[in-house]
Simulated assay, not measured.
Amino acid sequence: MISPAAADALETWLASQSALGGAAQNTLTAYHGDLTEFLSFMTLHKGESQGLGPLTRISVTDMRAWMAFTRGNGVGARSLARKLSAVKSFYRWLAERESFDPTAVLSTRAPKFQKKLPRPLDQDAARAVIDTVELQSETPWVGARDMAVVTLLYGCGLRISEALGLDGRDAPLPAVLRILGKGGKERVVPVLDAARDAVQVYLDLCPHPKEDDGPLFRGVRGGRLSPRIVSGVMEKTRMQLGLPSTATPHAMRHSFATHLLEAGGDLRAIQELLGHASLSTTQAYTAVDTARLMDVYNRTHPKA
């Protein structure tokens, strides 16, 4: 049971993350769940309601107990690191507001884990996916819809949430799209003719009327298309083509970045297209070997 004071502090912090930090709703939901679990554990661990006073006196031992408990419930190192990051963010804010030393929390080290590098498809496989995905449905408009979505992921480097977040007012697709990505960061993405045409074919076949305030991509009942549906279609497609389980909707975005770099694209420009805050994140998105990266670097940044 979380004390009213702790619950109020949590809600106030979440509101500040939304208003000042521009955190997306999915991020806020994850924060709320992570902090609720943490505060609930501390209440049980301490045997008393954790008001603001007790929360300011959490020790290193308490933090270790929480981490051990969380790992014992089957939470992996990567997920625990994410939860710890949320707790630290909350405590930085709380310490400033309540004027206490948060060192015990902020000094807690995240568990080590090996980052999994993305696995993009090669160009032939990416084209095969686009050509095959519409065949997974016997309903023509549904097949055209799925092809349009996957074409946007690969042709524009969109996240699945960004593609499915498009509304009717966004069509017909313009030459460039303004995409609101993670953290409320806006970026401009060029739209290929193939993507624009694929979306138009879908719209011409779709039985649901296009509404400016309604979703561009609809499920069979007319609501906004679910990412799970796209993942299921991709699963059928990769099985038909004999592709590995890493051939997911997100892999099409990885492939977009990799193929641009292979074609000589500038890494910094690709970073902007993907909406990455860090260039190192963009590098991780590309499956180009070091020699290839150095070749691109030397051609785009020649030494004097």
Rank of each mutant, 00 (worst) to 15 (best):
L10F: 03
S16W: 09
A23P: 09
Y31P: 02
L35Q: 09
L39N: 07
L39Q: 07
K46Y: 09
E48L: 12
Q50V: 10
Q50F: 04
I58V: 14
I58H: 08
D62Y: 01
M63K: 03
N73M: 15
V75Y: 08
A81Y: 00
F90Q: 13
Y91H: 15
W93G: 04
W93C: 05
P102F: 03
T103R: 14
V105N: 11
L106Q: 08
K112T: 01
K115P: 00
K116L: 13
K116H: 14
P118T: 11
L121H: 02
D122M: 05
D122S: 01
R127S: 15
V133S: 12
E134D: 12
E138R: 13
P140I: 04
G143Y: 00
T151K: 06
T151Q: 13
L152A: 08
L166D: 03
P174L: 05
L180I: 14
G183Y: 09
K185F: 04
K185D: 02
K185A: 12
K185N: 13
P207R: 14
H208Q: 13
P209Y: 03
K210S: 13
D213W: 03
L216C: 03
G222M: 02
G223A: 15
E235A: 11
R238K: 08
L241E: 01
L243C: 11
T246P: 04
A247L: 03
P249S: 09
A257H: 05
L260W: 05
E272I: 07
L279N: 11
L279S: 12
L279E: 03
V288P: 00
A291K: 12
T300I: 10
